[in-house]
Every structure is written in C-alpha cells, then in structure tokens.
Design a protein around this nucleic acid. Structure first.
Lengths: 251, 251
DNA sequence: CGGTGCAGATGATCTGAATCAAGGCCGTTA
DNA sequence: TAACGGCCTTGATTCAGATCATCTGCACCG
C-alpha cells in the first residue's frame, strides 16, 4: 500500500540493500538464546533451526517490511529496536508495538503482514523463511507450541493496549507505558528502575494515541512530580514505581 | 479481581448456576460446523472432539468468566453473542471484542483469563477443558494449527482496533465498526448490507472508546446523511457501503 | 565554527468529545 | 392501564488534549 504522508517531511524512511548481506549464523552462539522463542529447545533442535536461519542487519530507519507485503519471512530480533505501525490512507500513524531483543517479528500476519516494521536503531534480526519454519514444526512440536504461547501473550498485551487507548488519560497512558517497559527490563535482567527508551517522542505519541506535545508535557509533569528522572537522552529512571502505579491504575 | 463499579447501577450482571446443566453434545450435529475452529476436521477427529466437549447454556447478562479467573476451560460460541471486556480498578470498561456463533473464546489467556466474558443475549457454548484439548493436539495437529491461525487473525484484528482507538474520530470509528460487522455477516452468508447488532449502545461505546451520547449522536448523523437505516431495534441496513468506507478510511 | 535541521519544551488558543441535564419511547409488570 | 426502568436521544456546557506558534539545545557538516 503506497501511502502519501500529508504534511509530514518526506523520504525519511529508507528501503534498499541491507547494510550487510545476509549471512549464515550459528544459533548456538546467539546472544539472546534463552529469552526468545528458541528458548527451551534442545541442542539438536537449535542446530536444525540454525540451518534455516540467516542473520540480517538493518540500518536505523530502514523499513524492514510494509503493511501488506507478502509475509513469507519472519524474524527474531537479536539486537536493537523495531517499531510496528499501521497507517491510515491520510497518513495518521498508530504504532502497535515496539520490539526489543528476544522479540518475535511476524505474528498476526496471514497472507500479508498486518503492519509495517521499521528499524528504530541499528538492528540485527534472525531471519526465517516461513514455510521452512513450518516444516520444522512437523518434527519439533515444541517450536510450534512456543510460538502459539507467544501469540497468546501478544493477544493479552494487545488487549491491555486497547484498554489504554480507549479509556485512559494521557497521564495514565504515560505511566502505564513506563511501568510496562520497566517490568520488561527487570524480566530481562536489566537494572531495576532504569528504563531505556530507544524511540523518539513521536513514536511514543503514536503508540499511546497522543500528540508529541502532550507526551512532552506529560513527561515534564512526571519529572516535576518527582516520579521519574532523565539520566540521558534515551535513559530514564523510575523514582517511584508505586506513584506511577497509582497513576496508571487509579482506584 | 473484585471491582467496585463507581456510579454505575450495581448488580446487573449475574453469576450462578447455568440455565441448563452441562450436557454432552454431538459435534457432528453442530449448527456451526464449517465456520469455526473445528472446520476442516475429518469425521474421526470430530468424533474425538465431541467426546471432550460439553454443551453449555447461559442466560442473557450471565458472566461466563471474569478477568483473572483460572483459565482451564475454553469455549466455542454456537449461539448468541458474547462481549469481552477489561475493567480499570475505578470501573471504566473497555470492550475488547464481540463474539458471535463460530467464534472461539479463551485465546490470549495463559494462567488466567486476560479479560472477562459476558453473555449479551442468551448464549450457547461448546465447552472444552483446556488440558484435554491440548492432549488432543498431540494426535490431531490440524486442530492446533487451526487455533494458531485463529490467534493470528485475532492479533491482526486487535491491531486494527488499536489504530481505530488511537487515531480515528468518532464518526470514523462508527463507520469502521458497521463495515466490519457487515463484512463478517457477508462472510457468514448473511444478507448483504444488513447488520445485526445484538449489543446495546453502551457496549458499542465501550468498544469504540466513546460515550453512549457520542455513539447515539453519531448514529443519528449517519442516518441523517442517508448512509444507514434502522430496520428494527437491533437491525441496521447499510445504504451506502462506499460512503461508509470513505468515512472510515479518509484520504 | 557558523549554519542547518531535528528533537524536545512550552505557551496560547481551539475543538471534538465528554459531561451534565432533560425528555421520550417502549416493553414489562403490578 | 398506569407506572416503572432500560435504553436511547438531544441540547447546553465544559474540558482534556489537539493544534498552532515559538523557542532552545544540540549533533552534524561544509
């Protein structure tokens, strides 16, 4: 779907040759084994998976695929951050998710991708051809089951997001967003309370159904209220998880 | 999670014994075979499925399960309509979906249900114990694959809904909603252009992230503009699909 | 290093939808 | 058949967040 963005600076997103050509890759040496869908596979299964995977590299802003593109490959994010988004014909954008290392890319798509995917930072992906992966399912039931679990988790996350978009105020949205990211970092063994936000405020706005101005103002207010602190341009610190929880889920 | 609804009329939803007790049921005689997840199974598989399913009956307004309830059974809707919803602690509600005959109920839940489910009308469900169903997956791969497909479709639908909730105007939301329902009816072999809306306007409002007043006004406006017509309290007619499409997806 | 351009912050104003407030319609029931 | 309660409609008013308009800081680059 070719989309004309109305009033927005054009030609920001890139499409073209990869920064590095596809390369074979040994899954056994993968940085993120253990926190992705290949987690819990035995040596033999990992080897098989390795045989059908290709390591890919995309530059910042590179469009990995567009909504509607034929969805015959799926990916696993191993490095960097990716945004998923949908566009209206007149150019409004809804970011439907952010992917970080360990996340699976390509769910929710049947014939074509249901959304576009774009590199927020430099990104490394593990690429699988869908039909090869599905062939693998025949012999390795665990893989399919794991992917089904992931789809179910995504579905639950999507419903949380609907509640956020349909019924929460700007402040509640921002607090929920920060808490969710922070929980994720803790789960992945990050430092507690520190949150890395690779995306710009425009992405956050489009994810939370707000404008950049409202996002900026809300962040300012949370800072003024002593709930968060900004350590650097993309690093935040949650000073009061309780305070943020009170805001995100008001009684 | 016990939730105190603030300012809303209490005790509207019921919970308690089923209208009719659980009964064994023959899947082969199912009204909706062919449009549900049991579609495409062979005779033998259907018989196996039959052996683990129980037909259930719920009265209008009956709460089938609450968000957070242990999710050890799943269902297939065979008759009537169901709403799925999430609540904030202070009682705001987001309807995350409407289920009609043929729809699967229970996806997106891991340990506990990720949402509540309530009968909009009198409802008939086909009930499966989750572990029995999963055991069946071992021998009948098609079932698991079909369910995975359904989960993927749901995921795509959820992302459409995010775009709607995050970026569309009231009028656009209403038009999108009517069109989606109409497409569904056509798919299921219904009359073209006629749409059955079993839910009340409050449900629609909570589904579209609006208030009942805005829903009412928007419907009135679409009528005034000659785009829809109301044949009876729950039956609508789409007079101009093109007009509605222009509204739902503005260029 | 001076210029350019992008990300972010913040003030002023506007507006679409929420809220508040009445009534109307209709099916159910006493 | 009257009265009650659910559901819907419509008007008046308010308000949270959008829009418009600057301004600042800062990275990059010729």
């Amino acid at each position: 779907m070719a989309v004309e963005l109305k009033g927005l600076p054009k030609a920001r997103a890139k499409r073209g040759p990869w920064s590095t050509p596809c390369a074979a890759h040994d899954c056994r040496a993968c940085e993120i084994r253990g926190l992705t869908f290949c987690a819990g596979l035995d040596e033999n299964e990992v080897a098989t998976l390795s045989s059908i995977s290709r390591r890919m590299h995309f530059a910042k802003r590179h469009i990995i695929f567009q909504e509607g593109d034929s969805a015959d490959v799926v990916y696993n994010v191993t490095k960097g951050a990716v945004r998923l988004f949908k566009l209206t014909p007149d150019g409004r954008r809804q970011v439907t998710g952010f992917l970080l290392p360990g996340d699976f890319l390509g769910l929710g798509s049947r014939k074509g991708y249901a959304y576009g995917a774009e590199a927020i930072t430099e990104v490394e992906l593990c690429r699988f051809e869908r039909d090869k992966l599905e062939t693998l399912f025949e012999s390795h039931r665990g893989l399919e089951r794991r992917l089904f679990e992931i789809a179910n988790d995504e579905l639950a996350v999507a419903q949380d997001q609907m509640l956020l978009l349909g019924r929460k105020t700007a402040k509640e949205r921002m607090a929920s967003f920060l808490l969710k990211l922070s929980e994720r970092e803790e789960l992945r063994g990050g430092r507690d309370g520190a949150v890395y936000l690779p995306m710009v405020q425009e992405d956050i706005a489009d994810y939370l159904g707000l404008t950049i101005e409202t996002v900026s103002r809300t962040i300012s207010q949370l800072k003024r209220d002593g709930l968060i602190r900004q350590s650097s341009s993309h690093e935040f610190e949650l000073l009061s998880t309780e305070g943020l929880e009170d805001i995100s889920e008001p009684m």
